[in-house]
Structure formats: structure tokens, C-alpha cells
Design a protein around this nucleic acid. Structure first.
Lengths: 143, 143
DNA sequence: CGCCTATATCGATGAATGTCAATCTATGTG
DNA sequence: CACATAGATTGACATTCATCGATATAGGCG
């Protein structure tokens, strides 16, 4: 049994555009979806994965946002700021990236629910969403 | 090549590094570039990034391994198994992916230091590296 | 030995991603 | 109003990635 006949199509690669509102809800809003099964054989037949495809997709969005060195540094700089805020002009130079690129990265972090954006006057101030990093750590603990 | 000898011990923070040295083809391969532009009007000068480029790169590797829904589900299944193990035949079906693809994902997770691979007879058994998820959570807390 | 099974690796391909230059939008200021 | 500035958006390009089919390796069995 179980010759690897894969008749599937795009079962795993749905496009998830950050353009629109998050179709899966806030990536950090929800945790905990599991059911564990077990059995015994050569391996465990293991009916269903402990993590649903949707839940995995939602969590992967957050980790995808963290999967870039420049975005990690952006978070780090924002976090390290004494006021807890930073504007784009603060973030462009230390990373040695162009302004559009930084803006793009910041958007990804905002979409992932990690950063908050507040525009005051001409400047846009970014700050860590309270508890976001802790929630993300929770995504790992509840795999 | 191959033969990843992983001396399985970790020092809380920094042990999730793959054995392979990365070529670092990143276009921003510049650090310590002290180009300072005079006149900080808008925001706090904010000094240097709290996270070095190398550290960010290393951490991003781990998050990159987590940034795929199928890999998250693989981790979940491995973790959910009562024996703490799972072999590839267990992991191929629930994800509805081909065997080479699953093997590829597993390799990425092993390289990231998240999974351990042990071959017994014909089968390869994968298990969570003890403390790996906690260490990864630590990467977030110490941004 | 030859064959079967389980897993890994290779090569190709289409999609996603990071980056920049150019441009657009909004909010100032003279 | 004209003009300058901060930031976002667009379009293009090169790189990386996820996936597959085909093949290679390696252990088990007759």
C-alpha cells in the first residue's frame, strides 16, 4: 500500500496575499488546534496531523515574517528603542537598505501582527505589538 | 559529504545552527559600515542595531525552517507521536505530499537543528531535538 | 546473488521573495 | 499656491523555494 501516487494539485500552495485583509484572521490571534492520534505498526498509521492545514498556514505566516535577517533586525531596533518606537528614517540607515525595501519589510511585519504602525504628522512610527513575541513563542510551544 | 555529526548539546541560546556554513551571498554583506548622516530630525538617533547581521542571519535560518506550513505539520506530527518518533512513511500520507518532498522538508528541519534523524534498518526515524523549540522561543525573547 | 522496499538525491519548473529605481500620496512650510 | 519631505506603492529583475518525476543508495529477504 501507499505507493506514492500523488493526485493532488495545489493542496499546499494556496496563495495568501498580504494585500487583502488576512483571510485566516490575525495570525497571532489564535492558537491551539490539535488532536492527537496514535497507533502502532511499522510506523504509526497516524490518521490526522496534529496541526490542521489552516492552522499551519496561519502560523507559517508569522514565521515567514520572521524568516528574514533584515526583518529580525528591524524588530530588534524597534524593541531596543527607549521609546519603544522607531520611524522609517531610523530604520533605513542601520540596515543599509533602500527606503522602499524597509517600507516593504515593515508592512510584512505589520501584516503578521508583530508591529503596530501609527502615523503622526509626516512620520510613521512603528512599535512592537504588546505580547506579540510571546504569542509567537506560544505558537512553538503548542505545536 | 553528508554525515552530520551533531554533538547533541546546546547552550541555551546559540545552538541552533546548521553544520553547513552558509556562503552568505546576501547583497548586504556589509557591516560595521559607519556611514553617519548628520542631522537627525524626526526621531531618536537610535544608535546601532541591537542585532548584528550575522546573528540575524543565523536566527533567520531557524525561522525559515519554520516558515512553511508543511514543515510545521511535520514537527507537529513528530511531536504528537507517543514514542516521540515518526518515520517518513508516517509523514508522507497525512500531508498529501510526495515522498521526495517530505524527505526534503525533513532535511531542512534537521539542518535547522530542530529534528534528529536516526536510521534503524530500512526506516529513518525522526524525533524532536530536546529543547530545540524552547531555544527557538528564546531567539524571540532575546531580540 | 537478484529483487523489493524505504529513503535520499538530482534536475527541472513554476511560484514566491527581496531588492531597487521610479513614481505616487500625504503632510508639512515658505 | 509652490515646493520640500516622509513614506508608500508600482514595476521589473534576480534569487530562492516548494514541488515533482526520475534515479540513486542501502538494507532486508528469497
Amino acid at each position: 500500500m501507499s505507493i506514492y501516487v500523488h493526485n493532488g494539485f495545489m493542496t499546499t500552495q494556496q496563495t495568501l496575499r498580504p494585500e487583502t485583509e488576512n483571510p485566516l484572521g490575525s495570525p497571532l490571534g489564535n492558537l491551539l488546534g490539535d488532536d492527537a492520534r496514535a497507533g502502532a505498526d511499522c510506523c504509526t498509521p497516524a490518521g490526522l496531523p496534529a496541526l490542521s492545514a489552516e492552522d499551519a498556514q496561519r502560523r507559517a505566516l508569522v514565521f515567514k515574517a520572521l524568516a528574514d535577517p533584515n526583518r529580525l533586525r528591524l524588530l530588534s531596533i524597534v524593541k531596543a528603542g527607549e521609546s519603544g518606537e522607531a520611524c522609517v528614517c531610523d530604520l533605513t540607515e542601520p540596515l543599509d537598505l533602500g527606503q522602499p525595501t524597509v517600507s516593504h519589510h515593515l508592512k510584512i511585519l505589520v501584516d503578521a501582527g508583530l508591529l503596530h504602525r501609527e502615523k503622526r504628522g509626516t512620520w510613521a512610527y512603528y512599535s512592537l505589538v504588546p505580547g506579540a513575541l510571546e504569542s509567537t513563542a506560544g505558537l512553538l510551544a503548542t505545536l
